[in-house]
Computed example of a mutant assay.
Amino acid sequence: MNIRNGILAAALLILNATTAVALEKPTGDVVLTVTGKISQPNAGDKAEFDIDMLEKLVSRTGTMETPWTTGKVTFSGPMLNAILEAAGADGETLTIKALNDYAADVPMSDAKDFDTILATRMDGKLMSVRDKGPLFLIYPFDEKPELYNEKYFSRSVWQIKAIEVH
């Protein structure tokens, strides 16, 4: 009987480790929609996030200079990779779309290889649309100065509303 219980317990641990946790539904205003090749939708075939959901994910804070701000600014927000994992994203390219329909294609590897964040806060305050919010893709310019160039500037979308996974 003990061996059977041990096997059952081991099987349950394996099942729990390989079963993805369902993405909760937003209770506040939706600020980000992830579509395309995802396996964890929470609204039809898309994954929707409100600010509270985003701020519960693994996050990062970095103080850096950017071409779009004056002096050093502190950005904080969820890691892009954490958002993609929560949505069950599985693709090669992300099309990141802004409120004004500007879009940039970003390799999925940027989320995995760099500590990229979707900043929700600048200097501790939630980012408004006027201040490039509600979400701003920020590369780790503070940790990797070699990223401070036009290639990554063009991928640094602000006023983000959606990500499509290809």
Rank of each mutant, 00 (worst) to 15 (best):
A9E: 11
L12M: 14
I160W: 06
V157L: 05
D113R: 07
T70A: 15
P107C: 03
K97Q: 11
V21S: 11
T66W: 05
A20G: 04
K37G: 08
G28C: 05
K112I: 11
Q159A: 09
A10D: 06
F49N: 07
N16W: 05
N100D: 15
V30P: 01
T18C: 14
T63A: 13
V34R: 10
I83W: 03
Q40K: 15
S156I: 00
G88I: 05
E24F: 01
A11T: 11
F136C: 07
G44N: 12
Y148W: 03
P67E: 13
V157C: 07
S39E: 15
L8M: 10
A10N: 04
M79H: 08
D110C: 06
D131A: 10
E92P: 02
N2G: 14
D50P: 10
E85T: 13
A119N: 00
A10Y: 03
N42H: 10
G133H: 04
A17P: 03
T66M: 00
Y139D: 07
Y148I: 09
K37A: 15
N2A: 13
A22V: 09
G6Y: 02
S156W: 02
T95R: 03
W68P: 12
N149A: 05
E150D: 14
E55V: 07
T63P: 11
N149E: 14
Y102C: 12
T27M: 13
M79F: 06
N100M: 08
A22I: 04
K56G: 08
L137Q: 00
S59F: 03
S154M: 12
S156G: 00
N81E: 13
L126G: 06
A11N: 05
N42V: 11
I96C: 03
K56Y: 05
K132Q: 08
P134Y: 08
T27V: 13
E146S: 14
K37C: 08
T116R: 00
D90A: 15
A86M: 08
W68N: 12
N5C: 07
